[in-house]
Amino acid sequence: MTHIHIPDGVLPVWLWGGGWMLAILALLVADRASRRYETRRRLPLVGIVSALVIVAMSSEVVPIAYHMNLTVLAGALLGPALAVVSAFVVQVVLAALGHGGVTIVGLNTLLTAAEMCLGWALLQGGIRLFGLPRAGRVAAAATVLTLFVTTTLLVGLVALSGVTQATERETGALDPQNLTFASPFSEGVVHVGLFSGGESHEEPPETGGGLGLKRFATVVYTLGSIGWVLEALVTAAIVSYLARVRPSLLVQPRALAPVRPAPAEHHGGA
């Protein structure tokens, strides 16, 4: 559950606007952190890994409405700074192809970046703890844990937005008299007889926001967990293959110790 599949105009403006602002801030920080030559050198890799993620996200497992993400793998290959850039690029291209709303690109970038960074941290930590030969199992565990956390973040976002009561509020119309929202559907198109041809003054049924959120969370966790297992299997297989064939892609080189000046270079004179 690497991003929200919620269309434009459903989430409140403060939420998606805030998402955009935070995403831009994260991008500026990532851009600044990537100014070193070695990071710049990896720029084409950002393009290629992002393309890999886009291809994966475009292939849907139809019965469970899930698509592969490969975000943990992407995070492991790119590291945290470039992962943020990749997350944004992926979301912009997906939005340009109609996959996900444009207004929620910011929120989606944050979710995807969180997934990549968390996946990277768990994989790096796990490999250090258990060693490279167990990289596949570590990747599987990291993938399931990461997807669980980001799915919870997603449900938290929907809860925060209040979108489930909402649908009433956000599908309502702005009343210029008191600047509150009211639902045209409570009187609705049916009321004016466009569909039914008659007028009715039936009270709309009470719809609890909690009930909607519970149903949303149930759907997301139930269908998502099947997807997590699939994703974990694929990521584990790829990571264990990479660990055997080219481990340097997975193990981040340790920072070089600062070079001490050779004694001969000290020409300190008295």
Binding site: L27, L43, A51, V85, F88, V89, V90
Partner: peptide, 19 residues
Amino acid sequence: LPGLVGDALFMTYRAIFIL
């Protein structure tokens, strides 16, 4: 967009075809 992000966009789109 910041330079890095703009360039990454171009490279990503090209890479989709190659990959």
